[in-house]
Structure formats: C-alpha cells, structure tokens
Design a protein around this nucleic acid. Structure first.
Lengths: 189, 189
DNA sequence: CCAAAACGTTGACTTAAGTTAAGAAATACA
DNA sequence: TGTATTTCTTAACTTAAGTCAACGTTTTGG
C-alpha cells in the first residue's frame, strides 16, 4: 500500500532504510467511498492527501451553485487552501470516485521534517515546480476562449472528461453546463 | 538598502547577527530603469527578485500580442516559471517602473539554505501560503465576468490601475483593451 | 425494478465581448 | 517644443456565452 508513496518519493530523493521504516509507520493510508466529503466549508482543514487511486475535487458554493476549482487524480497532492491555517475553509473537498489516499497532517509533517530535513527540501522544490506549472495553467486559461479551454483540457487531462460529470467540468472551465454542451456539439462538427 | 529584506524576513524568523551579516554580504541589490527587460523569451532564467521599490510584470507574446500574466510590486517575490530550470523561458519579465530589487540565484539560495536551514523552512511555508492565495485568485477569476474581475482588481490592487497602462491591465484580466475601455465607461455610469 | 432525482441537450432570446477601423489623447524623445 | 509613436476611446457589426424553459436520458436508491 505504502509502495506508491515510497515509489513517488524515490524519484526525487534516496529512500534510506530508516526513512522507509518511518514511512511505513507514520503514513496513514485511507479508503474513501465515492461521495465522501473530506472537508466542509466553514470547517478547519487539518488533513492533506496524496492520491494513490481515485479522484478528488475541490469546490465552493456561490449563489447556490457549485463551482469546481480543481480536480486531483493519481499521484497528485491535495492541499486545501486552508490546510494548517487556523481559519475556516472556504471550500469543500469531495471524493468523486472511490479513493485510496495517503493522509497527512501538520503534526506528521513537522515530525517528518525534523527527522528528515531532505523531505522538507524536497517539498520546497516540488512546491516551486507545482507553483510554476499552476502559473502556466492560469496564464493559458486567461487568454483562452471557453472552447479553447475545453480543447486544452481534452488534450492535457483527457481522463477527467470521462471521470467527472459534465456540469462539474463546465464550472471548472468557468462556463455554464449549457455552454459546454454546445461547445461539444460544435467541436464534433 | 538591505533593510527592507531584513525587515521582511524578521516578520517570520528571528534575525541573528550571523544571519544579518550574511544577508548584507550575499544579498545583491540592483536598480533597473523603467523598460528594462530582466528575462527574455527563449533565455535561461537564473535570477529571481524581491521588489523593494517599483513594479515588474511578466508577459508572453502570442499571435503578435503581449499577454500580461502577472504584476509584482513592493515586497513581492518575482520567481519566473523557468527559474532554476534548465529550460528556456516562455515568458518575458520587464520593469514597468524604475525598480530597486534584491536579486537571487539558485546558487545563492542553495548556499543560504545550507547555512540557515530555517530560511528553507520559511520559504517552504511561505510558498504554501502564496500557492493557497494564488489558488483562491484563480478560482475567483474563473467564476467572475470581465467586469467583476476589473472591480475585484480595483478593490484588491487599486495601485496597479494607476501604475500600469490600461492595455496591460486588459490582457491581465484576459480581455481586449476595447472591452476594458467600455467596462470602465459602464461602471462610471 | 421502478420512481425520483440528477444530468445533459436543445431552442429562443438577451447581453456583452471580439473585431475592425478610425480618430482623439497622452507620452516619449529628438 | 513639436512631431512621432503609443495608448485610449468610440462606433458598427459579429459572435458566442448567459438565461430561462422544456424535455429527453441516465443514475440512484428504496
């Protein structure tokens, strides 16, 4: 079970026996059923996730409508905006498939960082890479029309279009479900 | 000159004499004239900046048009997407005002992190906070109309509207200059 | 297995952004 | 200071997204 996490880390840092043992001790693998709410609006966020199998989305509710802000799939880290802060979350986090994930908490992280400083270095470096990618995604999003955004999603994350319902994809693209339906029709020619 | 950086850091970690001395030794303060290009598309990015005074924007060129992706002002860190990677930058970085900034390089950073591990911890933590904010910004952007985006910018970064030319603001909002002009007219009633 | 709910498509209409073009206003700099 | 260049505004027109409403399709759960 923990193999996926070990495997993932081993691409970036050497896994010593000591680290391996620590990982098997403190990493907490959980299974969640589709529909499980991992974080509710207004609650304090004390968990982050590393997805081994499944799909998680974050969303918020505005004017009675769900607005999907992100989809996370295998090998991605789900770190709620409010994670580790003492402020209530503005977002919901939900499993949209049966999901298996490693669960982290600020306390576990701190313990880990103290024992294995190279894990903190790795997290800093990875964080910078993820930030850079995210900036690129935002830049592309800004400049693209809704149709281009859909085509780009189709190209970059084709699996999502199968895995998530269309109205969630629509709000992820910043458009209404009716518009997405028309875009799809238009594209099919 | 280095006071601004010391001052900024001191909000998060204690500044020891040793650290202070180090800062004054290795921090490299530079002045740039308005219009200076700090990074060109296609070049390797080896510098990041901490703005003491002035304004920097990043942009790229698509279909012959400049698309502004971000504006950075006092106390903000400018870290190009390609910074420290060995790949050519897709973006330009330009001073749109006379600017004074602390300049960092991957080598300086590494040296710093080795001597003062708490700086790396700080950077990891700050990085997470910045990432969380950025996610919120993106989420808000997605769901807002161009007019709402402009109103939000007016509320959250009113100085930018004075400091940057309108066509740069327009592309930052993901719209055409003509549209921004009409939005402004509409708002003024 | 069936009924209810959730989800997706379509149509008619409204609205605002894109496009193109022209000209006014502001700015740069020789 | 005056001219060239850049920036901003306006107008007429096109296009696609939002809105509202209806209806067909799929999924869910008792």
């Amino acid at each position: 079970m923990e193999d996926e996490i070990k495997n993932y880390l081993s691409r970036y840092i050497p896994i010593t026996n000591e680290l391996e043992e620590e990982l098997s001790k403190i990493e907490f693998i959980q299974s969640y059923k589709k529909g499980t709410i991992l974080l509710e609006e207004g609650k304090i966020s004390n968990e982050c996730y590393f997805i081994i199998k499944g799909c998680i989305r974050s969303f918020f509710i505005k004017e009675g409508e769900e607005r999907t802000t992100e989809f996370y799939t295998e090998e991605q880290a789900v770190i709620p905006s409010a994670y580790g802060m003492k402020v209530p979350s503005e977002y919901y986090v939900e499993c949209i498939e049966d999901t298996i994930a490693g669960v982290g908490t600020p306390e576990l992280e701190l313990e880990m960082y103290q024992k294995f400083p190279q894990i903190e270095s790795l997290n800093r470096a990875l964080g910078e890479v993820i930030m850079a990618k995210y900036q690129d995604t935002f830049a592309e999003f800004k400049m693209a029309s809704p149709e281009e955004r859909y085509l780009s999603l189709l190209k970059n994350r084709p699996d999502l279009i199968q895995r998530a319902p269309q109205h969630q994809i629509a709000s992820y693209l910043g458009i209404k479900p009716e518009s997405l339906s028309r875009i799809r029709k238009r594209i099919m020619k």
